[in-house]
C-alpha cells in the first residue's frame, strides 16, 4: 500500500470515529480518532518530505497535490492548537472536511502531469505555497468557529434551546475565530503577495495578468481584513464579523476554483 493510500485509510478511519464521537460523545472515541488522524498525518508528512526531496520542490505543483497538502496543513494546525483550544467537538466537523479534501486530492480532481517550471525550484515557490496553505488552514479553522458562533447565536436568539452537540459557547467561538483569523492573515497576505511579487520581478508588470485566482485572493484578503478591522475597532457586532469570516472563507474556495479553471 502506498503512503498516499495509507494516509487516506487512516483519515477515513479517523473520520468514522470522529462522527461516532459526535453521536455518542464517548471520550475514548475522540482519542481513537485523534490517534488515527495522527498516524495518517505522520504518513503524509513522510510522503511530503520524500516528494520534496526527490523532486526538488514542494509537492504542491498540481491541484491534486495542493488539495492533499491543504488537508495536511489543516490537520497540523488542529493537532498543534488542541492543547490550547481543548475543543473536542471540532474534530466532528473537521475530520470529514479533511478527509474529503484529501480524498478529492487522491481521486476526484484530475491529475495533469506536472510540467516542471524553473519557478518551482526557487525559494519563492516554497514560501508562496507554505504561507498560502497555512493561511488557508488558519482561515478554515476560523471559519469553523465562526460557523459555530452563528449556529449558537441563532439558536439563542430564537430560543431554540441548547444545541444537541456540546459546541463551544458564543464567547469561546468568537474568541477563537478572531484569534485564528488574526494568526492566519499574515500567512495569507505574504503568501499571495510573494507570488505576485515574483511574477512582477521576473516577468515585469506587463507580464502580470490577474485572473480568477488573483481576484478571489484579493477579495478574500479584503473581506477577512474587514473582519479583523471589526474585531480591533469593536465597531462591528460579533455576528457580522462571523459572517465576514464565512464570506472570506467562500472567497478562499474561489481561489481553489480559480486554480481548477486555470
Amino acid at each position: 500500500m502506498s503512503l498516499v493510500n495509507l494516509t487516506l485509510f487512516f483519515y477515513v478511519a479517523a473520520m468514522a470515529f470522529a462522527l461516532m464521537f459526535g453521536g455518542v460523545r464517548k471520550t475514548v472515541l475522540f482519542w481513537i480518532s485523534i490517534a488515527l488522524a495522527t498516524i495518517g498525518f505522520a504518513a503524509q508528512t513522510i510522503y511530503l518530505a520524500y516528494g520534496w526531496g526527490a523532486e526538488g520542490y514542494p509537492p504542491a505543483a498540481n491541484l491534486n497535490e495542493l488539495f492533499r497538502i491543504t488537508a495536511w496543513a489543516i490537520l497540523a494546525l488542529y493537532l498543534a492548537l488542541y492543547p490550547a483550544t481543548r475543543s473536542r467537538i471540532l474534530v466532528f466537523f473537521l475530520m470529514p472536511f479533511v478527509t474529503l479534501v484529501y480524498f478529492g486530492g487522491c481521486f476526484i480532481v484530475p491529475d495533469p502531469p506536472v510540467q516542471s517550471k524553473p519557478y518551482y525550484f526557487t525559494a519563492w515557490f516554497a514560501v508562496h505555497i507554505l504561507l498560502l496553505v497555512f493561511g488557508m488552514a488558519f482561515f478554515f479553522l476560523s471559519f469553523l468557529y465562526a460557523a459555530i458562533f452563528i449556529m449558537q447565536d441563532h439558536s439563542l436568539r430564537y430560543h431554540h434551546g441548547p444545541s444537541p452537540l456540546p459546541i463551544p459557547s458564543l464567547e469561546e467561538a468568537e474568541r477563537w475565530s478572531s484569534r485564528l483569523l488574526l494568526l492566519g492573515y499574515p500567512f495569507f497576505t505574504l503568501g499571495i503577495f510573494s507570488s505576485a511579487l515574483y511574477g512582477i520581478l521576473h516577468g515585469g508588470k506587463s507580464n502580470y495578468h490577474p485572473g480568477l485566482i488573483e481576484s478571489a485572493s484579493i477579495l478574500a484578503w479584503i473581506v477577512l481584513g474587514a473582519a479583523i478591522y471589526g474585531w480591533f475597532s469593536a465597531r462591528v457586532h460579533p455576528r457580522r464579523r462571523a459572517w465576514l469570516v464565512v464570506a472570506g472563507a467562500a472567497f478562499s474556495v474561489l481561489i481553489i476554483l480559480g486554480i481548477v479553471w486555470h
Binding site: S163, E172, R175
Partner: peptide, 18 residues
C-alpha cells in the same frame, strides 16, 4: 438538558459565556 427554570437559565448562560 435542563428541566427547571433556574437550571435552564444557568445552562443558557453557559452557552453564551465561556
Amino acid at each position: 438538558r435542563p428541566v427547571t427554570i433556574s437550571y435552564a437559565a444557568y445552562n443558557l448562560a453557559r452557552s453564551i459565556f465561556q
